[in-house]
Amino acid sequence: MIDPNTDSQPAPTMQDTALLEVRGLTTCFKTGFDGREINAVEDVSFSVAPGETLAIVGESGSGKSVTSLSVMGLLPPQTGRIASGSIKFRGRELTTLNNVAMRSLRGNAMSMIFQEPMTSFNPVYTIGHQIAEVIVLHQKLGYRAALSKAVDMLELVGIPEPQRRIDNFPHQMSGGMRQRAMIAMALSCEPDLLIADEPTTALDVTIQAQVLELLKDLQARMGMAMIFITHDLGVVAEVADRVCVMYAGQIVETAPVRDIFAAPRMPYTAALLGSMPRLGAGRDRLVPIPGHVPPLSRLPKGCRFQGRCGFAQPSCAAGEPRLEPIAEDHQVRCFRAGEPDLIERSLS
């Protein structure tokens, strides 16, 4: 995945080659009894090039899942809405698209897989039927042809005896197998973009390793782009080309995967990396981030991370920092981003 040779190629400029381009996305939700709206995601901008894997990483409440649901047009209609911003897929604006057009795009040109496959399969239909249904709907194939394509898809994702498995109901499969079946369904129409929302979080590590290998392999074969949403930095290192780090509804740092791990510039990214226990690190003391993520209804004034940041100074409460470039393809939301060795100094 991380081929050292890719460094020599010029990074594609996002404006002209992007498959997906999100600009200034703000998504809000109604909360509580008074119906007051809060921004679950605020001023989020990123782009995904064809064939690229972008990882969006963050803790719970960071807004990573809401971002993906906004892109897919799957926000809960009663409570969630896109308040502002633009989402362009192959140059076409999605935020103003009607439901019918959006539905034909979903499952066809872009597709999504979730953490828990049980929630995206209907328990009373067979796996084969459900995959075939997607194919019939999007590809103008007859049911028989679609069913035989469903068998091919199950075979592609490494399910043994696919001919027999299409007659299984979801509960007859193991967790890892269901996740494969969901991937088969999501990829059955050969989408250009796959959004994977914590697809391996509920799986055991040995099964996670299988599913990650499978996704990387399929991506290489089908040439699709992927947005991979996760809280696990280990998984990020394994799959991503580029990374967006989110915190309390905002992107706080975005960079190529190597820079995120080797030279993080937002204190939150660095602190997150420092707080994870690492295999082979023995019993070194962990360095936790103090406190917890502030609830979206009670955000501090100014930088949202200041209360937990080791580098905060009084000016951090004064204004909201903006996501600003510090190098080509590396942006940071921090007032102190201009001090290049800030984080390095603190580690030595």
Binding site: T206, Q208, V235
Partner: peptide, 23 residues
């Protein structure tokens, strides 16, 4: 196999993975 399956937070890490088949 279990150890080799753990994702490492290091994009330059070259793993020698023992990929277990099946469940």
């Amino acid at each position: 196999a279990l150890m080799s399956a753990v994702p490492r937070p290091d994009p330059t890490f070259k793993r020698q993975r023992v990929l277990l088949q099946g469940d």
